[in-house]
Design a protein around this nucleic acid. Structure first.
Lengths: 228, 228
DNA sequence: TGTGTGAATTTTGAATTCATAATACCTTTT
DNA sequence: AAAAGGTATTATGAATTCAAAATTCACACA
């Protein structure tokens, strides 16, 4: 039997808006009309405004006093900074995972690694990415550090709507796989320092900003600025 | 001429509540009465509740559906996890600072370092701590990574109300100063990897949890749990 | 044609009101 | 006296209302 969900409206609304942002239904820089969202969700302004405040402190929207809200316009610098940060967090997750993970957990990651390798050899990019993601999630979870997990997920959410260019070069891909080989080796040895080092330097975290597509703005914030 | 501050009530209220929590005027686990706070601040419930939502997503309070809010009761584990995380972030700040900092910035940190050393030799603990804090802040700022700064400050805020036992042992203190010597050396060489490593391992981040005083709870969350 | 001023409209900020869930209190029963 | 059950009170969740700020639009004027 499933738990009774005492979900508040504002949480529900926040989740829905997050989805809208992630899927690009609300575009960066676009003014978010309270009235409009209220109507589409069928709620009053109170829970909607509460949701916006939460999203603002999550870094997904920004609130302009007396002028409503808008989806944060990611700049190249913000994305780069966020990736640097996520790299550091992955490093920590690896370091901690080596202390905390069970043998079964290591086993599970090895399995995923093998699976990933086979996708690599078959050049199945999407499947490769999926398993790759799972591996990193496993390590993050194995860190047993919930504060870390919360923060990582928040950062991840912020840049989720940015999509990489799918054209991963061959040498790039090979290097990534090599990193993973080393990661698994370090994990098996439970060498936290090493795994941390590898994860921090893992090229996925150092992705060439040039390869970021679409939604991103190059410099400075646009939209007319009032006297704030 | 100073900027016109278009501060919203909910921000003001959130700041005030943060202060109350930091200064221990609102105790962890204590139920936060909306009515009471409304009266003390002289505002209606609307901005107060918005502020609580923000504080909740900052990790300072928790909201119990239909049962109001309370200050988060920090557990030993949460504090330890947070320090681990802050260590990783400091490491990154050091790494980035080496790339970004100006020569003048390095100079400034050297000055602070000298000042700190003199406080160390004179055994002026409070002054030592203050300058120590400034040094770390300078490095953080020098990283030029605003996302990092935001995250670090948030984490710092969460554990701010936890005070260390002031009895720093001699060897502990000496080791800390030694770390700082190495930090400055690495910074001068602009050796990011090394500075990062030192900062991550810097014993301030690995403080014995045993030395944490007061407010902290040891395990599991207290307070009667309903069927959530 | 373009620019600036001011009223009308819209939108946001905050207080109030209404509905509902949780808590406290008081009775009843054993 | 203790436990159970039901009612009254209080606190929270959400909608509505009111006030103030920003935006839009019309019109005058250069």
């Amino acid at each position: 039997m499933s738990k009774i969900q005492h979900r508040n409206l504002y949480r529900e609304v926040a989740d829905r808006i997050r989805d809208l942002i992630e899927h690009g239904d609300l575009l960066p820089g676009e003014r978010i009309s309270e009235k409009h969202l209220c109507e589409t969700f069928g709620v009053s302004r109170t829970p909607l405004r509460e949701a916006l405040k939460v999203l603002a402190s999550e870094g997904l929207v920004e609130l302009l006093p007396n002028r409503g809200a808008r989806v944060v316009q990611l700049t190249l610098k913000m994305v780069k900074d966020t990736y640097d940060l996520m790299g550091a967090l992955e490093g920590l997750s690896g370091e901690l995972a080596c202390q905390e993970i069970s043998d079964a957990g290591i086993e599970r990651i090895c399995e995923l690694h093998e699976k990933m390798l086979s996708h690599y050899h078959n050049r199945e990019l999407a499947a490769y990415f999926e398993v790759n993601k799972q591996i990193h999630e496993h390590i993050l979870t194995a860190s047993k550090n919930e504060v870390l997990q919360e923060m990582y997920n928040n950062l991840s959410q912020r840049v989720k709507r940015v999509r990489y260019s799918k054209k991963m070069t061959d040498s790039f891909w090979r290097q990534a796989v090599e990193d993973h080989e080393n990661m698994v080796a370090a994990l098996k040895k439970r060498d936290g320092k090493l795994l941390g080092q590898i994860l921090r330097d893992h090229l996925c975290n150092k992705l060439e900003v040039a390869s970021l597509s679409g939604v991103i703005e190059d410099e400075a914030k646009p939209l007319r600025m009032a006297s704030y």
